[in-house]
């Protein structure tokens, strides 16, 4: 028997919205520690990895490891029926072919029950090694979203280059070219919210090219976190990570573009 409950069901809806345009369906792997999900886009350029810790749930019970094969578009249809402040409970039997989703309003005056049919998904799981990245940037997620959206009107590819002082996003296209640089926030600045700062940890300057179409897709997760962390290395995937306070994180890996 698998059972979990989230006070803010809305968070789960946002999570599904953050993966469903990239990956059609996937296996929720539930064990005693939490829930994880991994999926690749159809052209195998991007990988999304979701990790939810049991501590983030108000209730969590997993007697035996279960795999829930879920079609995200179908799940999203059911989650649409959930109220913005509803509590969400998910239940599944060990060998069942469906999972139940219960939405309950704050004052318990409205309870909705949905039963989602599960799928058998034969999906290869990739092993993502722990890597030391050459540059790690933490910045406001809304700022990253705006940059990706605005630059994609000019070109398809963004070049991200990082130095100790700044991170630069450059684009070129038929109409011309441009770049936007964000300077590392002053370390002595004790005023203001940390989540509004730009922090750069650098081992070595890096520059890599990425498809803006995918980065724009990743920014669907902006609603989940005030900040986003970008980790870059040479000739390795970019990691775009959104951390949710104590619930866990969603990470997107994007393979770089290289000169042929």
């Amino acid at each position: 028997m698998f059972e979990c409950a989230l006070i803010q069901g809305e968070l789960f809806r946002k999570l599904i919205a953050s993966v469903q345009d990239l990956v059609q369906d996937g296996n929720f792997m539930c064990d005693a520690n939490g829930i994880s999900l991994q999926g690749m886009d159809s052209s195998h350029v991007a990988l999304v990895a979701l990790a939810l810790k049991k501590e983030g749930f108000v209730e969590y019970r997993c007697d035996r490891d279960v795999t829930l094969g879920i079609n995200f578009a179908n799940l999203a249809k059911m989650l649409k029926c959930m109220g913005a402040k509803d509590r969400l409970s998910i239940r599944a039997q060990d060998e069942g072919d469906s999972a139940s989703f219960v939405f309950e309003s704050e004052d318990s005056s409205r309870v909705s029950n949905f039963e989602l049919k599960l799928m058998q998904i034969d999906q290869e799981q990739l092993g993502v090694p722990e890597t030391q990245y050459k540059a790690v940037i933490r910045m406001p997620s809304s700022e990253f979203q705006r940059i990706c959206k605005d630059l994609s009107a000019i070109g398809d590819t963004v070049s991200i280059s990082v130095t100790k002082e700044a991170v630069k996003f450059s684009v070129g296209g038929d109409i011309g070219s441009g770049d936007m640089s964000l300077r590392q926030s002053e370390s002595g600045d004790v005023d203001g919210d940390d989540s509004e700062k730009v922090m750069i940890e650098l081992e070595e300057p890096v520059q890599q090219n990425f498809a803006l179409r995918y980065l724009n897709n990743f920014t669907k997760a902006t609603a989940l976190s005030k900040t986003v962390t970008l980790s870059l290395g040479t000739d390795m995937p970019l990691v775009t990570e959104y951390k949710m306070d104590n619930l866990g994180s969603i990470r997107y890996y994007l393979a770089p573009k290289i000169d042929e």
Partner: peptide, 14 residues
């Protein structure tokens, strides 16, 4: 010309 790499090249299959 810029060429997009396949991500499977970077990560091994479990």
């Amino acid at each position: 010309h810029i060429f997009q790499i396949n991500i499977v090249l970077f990560f091994s299959t479990k």
